[in-house]
Structure formats: structure tokens, C-alpha cells
Design a protein around this nucleic acid. Sequence first.
DNA 1: CCAACTGTATTACCCGTATAATACACCCGT
DNA 2: ACGGGTGTATTATACGGGTAATACAGTTGG
Lengths: 115, 115
Amino acid sequence: MEGSSPIYLQITDYLKRLIASGELADGDMLPSRRELSAYLGVNPNTVQKAYRLLEEEGLISSRLGAKSYISLTDERAEEIGRRILEGEIRAAVTSLKRTGLTLDEAVSMVERYWD
Amino acid sequence: MEGSSPIYLQITDYLKRLIASGELADGDMLPSRRELSAYLGVNPNTVQKAYRLLEEEGLISSRLGAKSYISLTDERAEEIGRRILEGEIRAAVTSLKRTGLTLDEAVSMVERYWD
DNA sequence: CCAACTGTATTACCCGTATAATACACCCGT
DNA sequence: ACGGGTGTATTATACGGGTAATACAGTTGG
């Protein structure tokens, strides 16, 4: 979980990636707040904040006392995947252009650093 | 000055880019703290923090009462350029790999989004 | 049934970032 | 020389992110 953006956003993004790739599908159980926070070594409140956001976005469903689970349609999952991919690409391209390199130079740099 | 990292770091990075590209060279005067802060619409203390960092890195020189100016060797400027470029590329590649795309797919996506 | 686990909520605290308002010592051009 | 601009410093305030400790209501499985 490397990165400097807020932890709770890293968690939501990570789960969205799993949803986008199909590793997490509708009906799948999620680790409890306490469980995941212990595993990640962060505060339960931080995980709760992430789960709350995901619930507000309609991606997961929670009931008091019971475990939370993924709750979305296939179309929604696919749309999430497209959105994440596009955002990632756009950000990478913006960053690459800012270096002042040409497209060809940038591409060959990316190829050189890929492994 | 778009981005979500601390403003004072955005300022140092921006000035380092100008140094790396040669638009700012040894001896060049910098805008005063108050001037730049007014132009950017941020607090003078924030600019001061950025300038202080740059001075600690030995990139600029300040004297009480007088304007600050760029102070570095050509080798240092070139080294900064290399370091920035490498960091940018590495970050972009990391981000691209995380999407799960293959190298070829990533490259064609970058080409498609370049303009 | 009931103990263990779950989601939820609240309160307090810390740290980094950023703003705001001053104040002071210093340089420089007119 | 002197006034305006400069670097520098200090204090206070605010906010978001994160931690910590605790409490309560609800579900669930043995």
C-alpha cells in the first residue's frame, strides 16, 4: 500500500481495482473493519472511513452486526474498471508530457524502465 | 499549479524544473517571497518554506534585505534534470504497470491519450 | 441461548499544511 | 539618507488526516 495519498483513499482505490479486475464480485464478503485494519496496520477508523465512502458510492452493503459485502451490477463493475484505467492513463500521460520529452522519447523511456 | 501535494513542494519542484530546463540559470534573480505569493495566491509563509528548502539544498542564495538568486553549478543543474526525469518516468511506469496492462497495451494507450 | 464478533458512534489528541497578522533587521535605488 | 522593498521570525488559528480508547446495538454460529 505504497503512496502518499490519504490511506482511506488508497483503500477505496485498492478495493475498486479488485472489483474492476473481477477478483471481487457481487455478493463477496469483505474483511471486517477491525480485521482489515489489523492486517494493514492502520486505525479501524481509517478503514471505516474507506468502507463508508464505498457504501456511499453504492459499491458495498453493510448491516449493523453483520459483515459487509460487495453489492453492484456487472455493468457498474465494468464502468469502474474503465474509469480507473482512463484516470491512470491520463495522469501518467500528463506526468510524462510535463518532462518536456517528445512522445517517442517518452515511449522509449517507458519501455526502458518497464522491468 | 495543479496537484494535491503540499504547495511548498509544488513550488520547489516547479523551480527545479525551470532550473533543469535551463530557463533559470546561475545568478538569475528570483521573485521575492511576497511577490511570488501574491502571484500564486498563496501565503507568503508557504513560499518562504519553499525558498528555505531550496536554500538548504544549495540551489538558491538569500541575503537579508536583498533579493534571492539562483546559485548552482552547471553540473548540479544537469544532475537535477536527470534526477527529476528519472523520478517522473519511474512513477509513470509504476502507475501504468499497476493497471494490469501489458507494456504494448500501455504504450498504445499513452500514444492514444498524448494529445 | 449467549459469547464472540460485527457495524457504528463519540470523544480526545497529535501532526503537517496553510493562512493571517505582525514585527524587525537589512539592502538598494532615487 | 531615507523610504520602499527585501529576507526572516514569531504567534495564533484552522483544517484534514490519522490514531487511540471506549461504548453500544445488532448479528451469527456453536
